[in-house]
Write a protein that binds this DNA or RNA. Structure first.
Ligand SMILES: NC(=O)c1ccc[n+]([C@@H]2O[C@H](COP(=O)([O-])OP(=O)(O)OC[C@H]3O[C@@H](n4cnc5c(N)ncnc54)[C@H](O)[C@@H]3O)[C@@H](O)[C@H]2O)c1
Ligand SMILES: NC(=O)c1ccc[n+]([C@@H]2O[C@H](COP(=O)([O-])OP(=O)(O)OC[C@H]3O[C@@H](n4cnc5c(N)ncnc54)[C@H](O)[C@@H]3O)[C@@H](O)[C@H]2O)c1
Lengths: 220, 220
DNA sequence: TCACCCATGTGAAAATTTTAACATACGCCG
DNA sequence: CGGCGTATGTTAAAATTTTCACATGGGTGA
């Protein structure tokens, strides 16, 4: 809270802060100490005024005439985004998506600690993915409670998603990243974001259909 | 074009049309012939007025007092979204994400035909995933041209993404679904959507950090 | 020290998107 | 056959988000 200047800002701002964070990491790695909103925007295809406004919701991080100190802004964004701590996460569904997520080491680097993967397939239980054990789905309740898991990734078939979500929430999970193509119904104090890959492809198909005659570009 | 009534509508509308489409498929499977915007919205957590407005950009599909004929609206949405034809797609990067996408059979059912997967790892070339061959990345140009590929999924490390995108576009691809965590710079007649999983997790982390004192709910 | 450059932070305007409200039309039932 | 309940399509208002424009203040170099 401390860092928030205004109480109201676009939902999209948070997403962009994450982009800024990553771009700044990259700059930092390349030994760049300072960046202007203009330069950062160029990297990300985002207007400089948008960046300045986004940041202004949280504080005054830049120096007029100079731009932003990369390391300092990184530290601030880390704090704002809640990345200055560890998050304990479980994955439900040890299928293709679950495995991809479990294998992605950058999550650990960012502080997302994948504590376990749960599945109800006997053949998968007992194995592990990238060092993370696959446990029986029936034990998920105890595990979440005992390990104070706050976040979960749902990577089970659509038909099972709502039941899994309910169980997770009942056990204490309050944030969910959902890959199943259904709108999960949840209590309003549970944060849930969905990733819908089919929809992305279909949106591309739409744009393709109309890009041929270029009308979308003229009229959208 | 034929089906479009207005020339200007929210970008988010297309995404929602895809949700409507899927929800209607589900209703259809369950033998339901007719649905109201209210009922459909309930399923998807979307306000009924939003649904009616979205549809109204493209035509008059409902019957007053009655609602929408599920099969008819499905047919119309299929046409609008460009799903009444086959799309030829290639995947670049036979890693975890590439494999997950190649293994997801629902894409084929929707008309997205995964023609090939490309990788530059000798050990992977020659194998196949879910019946789709993994081919040498160096051949991608010829393949895309010969098979008139229009869409591509980029699932290579961030460092390689821009080069891959450039090559794809040069070969004739005009729509890209990008999983690499970089803002790919493209000619404006190329459609590109990105899926950024890290950003999703970070956004959840943000909301978690502030949901504790519930301020986000009051002030957002 | 002062003048000049530069890029921030911000308040106001513009653009976009969502929500509300209701007149309109459809079908059913009596 | 006409009135009634119902849910659409639409118009207008509200809310949200982006963009613009510039006054402001920090740094640099003469
Ligand atoms: N793979 C993709 O590219 C892709 C694309 C779009 C959407 N999705 C969605 O993502 C989700 C996961 O996809 P996937 O390809 O990884 O599926 P998958 O079939 O590879 O894996 C699903 C896993 O969930 C497990 N499971 C099923 N029911 C369960 C339950 N009740 N409790 C615990 N585990 C259970 C299965 O044993 C399996 O291991 C699905 O909802 C799918 O529709 C995937
Ligand atoms: N796995 C995840 O859950 C996850 C999460 C967030 C983001 N991502 C992003 O998605 C992308 C793919 O991730 P992944 O986990 O599948 O990676 P991965 O390492 O499993 O697979 C990458 C594949 O790309 C191939 N490759 C590398 N350079 C190439 C080139 N120039 N041409 C052709 N092929 C090349 C590699 O041989 C490998 O097979 C990455 O950009 C990653 O940052 C993945």
């Amino acid at each position: 809270m401390a860092r928030r200047k205004k109480y109201k800002f676009p939902k999209t701002t948070i997403e962009r802060l994450s982009y800024y964070f990553r771009a700044l990491e990259d700059l930092s790695k390349r030994g760049i100490d300072t960046v202007s909103s203009e330069a950062l925007g160029g990297k990300l295809n985002i207007k400089s005024s948008q960046i300045r406004k986004d940041l202004s919701y949280f504080g005054d991080f830049g120096k007029r005439g100079m731009g932003y100190d990369v390391k300092y802004l990184l530290k601030e964004l880390k704090y704002i985004l809640g990345l200055d701590r560890e998050w304990s996460v479980v994955i439900v569904g040890a299928g293709h998506i679950g495995a991809a997520m479990a294998n992605y080491d950058s999550f650990e680097k960012r502080g997302f600690n994948i504590a376990a993967i749960f599945d109800n397939d006997e053949k998968k239980i007992g194995k592990e993915i990238n060092g993370t054990p696959i446990l029986p789905y029936d034990n998920i309740d105890d595990f979440v409670k005992q390990n104070k898991i706050e976040m979960a990734i749902i990577a089970v078939p659509a038909a099972a998603a709502q039941a899994v979500a309910d169980k997770l929430v009942e056990s204490g999970v309050t944030a969910i990243l959902n890959f199943a193509p259904v709108a999960v119904q949840l209590d309003e104090n549970v944060r849930c974001l969905s990733v819908d890959l089919t929809t992305k492809l279909e949106a591309l198909a739409y744009y393709m259909s109309y890009s041929q005659d270029k009308l979308w570009k003229i009229y959208s």
